[in-house]
Simulated scan of single mutants.
Amino acid sequence: MSRSPSTYLPKDWHDRLPDPANYYAQHLDKLGNIASDGWAMVPCPFHDDHSPSLRVRLTSRKGAYHCPACGAHGDMVAFHMARTELPFKEAVRDLIGFRGRA
C-alpha cells in the first residue's frame, strides 16, 4: 500500500527538526538571554502579553515552551502547529523542510 505524500513522515523526522534556539529566534520577537537552565523568556504570542511570560527551552531537542499566564505549552512541533494552524504531520513536514516532496 502506498502512502499519500501529504501523510508521509520520514522515520528520522525527530532528528531533522531544527535547533530550538534557531527556530525560536526566527519566530519570536525579543527572545531573552538563555538562563543557566536552558530556558529563555519572551512575550507570549498566544495572548496580549506586555512583558515576557513565555518560557522556551532552547537547549533541548524538543524545544519545550510554557506560558503560565495563558496556559500555552508543548514542544516545538506543538508551537509550530499553533502558530501556523497546520495539522501535526504537515507542521512536522514544514519544520523539516519536507513540504511538497513525494
Score class of each variant (00 low, 15 high):
M1A: 12
M1W: 06
S2N: 10
R3G: 01
R3H: 08
S4Y: 08
S4P: 01
S4N: 15
P5W: 06
S6Q: 14
S6P: 00
T7R: 12
Y8L: 12
Y8V: 05
L9F: 07
L9G: 10
P10C: 09
P10Y: 06
P10M: 09
K11S: 15
D12P: 04
D12N: 15
W13K: 09
H14A: 10
P20E: 09
Y24A: 05
A25C: 03
Q26Y: 01
L28P: 01
L28V: 02
D29K: 13
K30Q: 13
L31Y: 05
L31D: 10
L31I: 00
L31Q: 08
N33C: 00
N33K: 12
I34V: 13
I34S: 06
A35Y: 07
W39F: 07
M41N: 07
V42R: 03
V42T: 15
V42C: 13
V42S: 15
P43K: 04
C44E: 04
P45C: 04
F46I: 02
D48V: 07
D48H: 12
D48E: 14
D48S: 12
D49P: 01
D49V: 00
S51Q: 11
S51A: 10
P52Y: 03
S53E: 11
L54K: 08
R55E: 11
R55W: 07
R57T: 00
R57Q: 12
L58E: 02
T59A: 07
R61Y: 02
R61P: 00
G63F: 04
G63I: 02
A64K: 10
A64T: 01
Y65G: 05
H66E: 12
C67Q: 07
A69I: 01
A69C: 04
G74L: 02
G74E: 01
D75G: 12
D75W: 03
V77G: 05
V77L: 08
A78G: 13
A78T: 11
F79Q: 08
F79P: 09
H80D: 12
M81D: 06
A82Q: 13
A82H: 09
R83K: 14
T84F: 10
T84I: 10
T84R: 15
E85H: 15
K89N: 03
K89M: 02
K89Y: 01
A91I: 04
A91E: 05
A91D: 05
V92P: 03
R93M: 01
L95P: 09
I96Q: 07
G97A: 08
F98H: 14
F98I: 00
R99V: 11
G100M: 13
A102G: 09
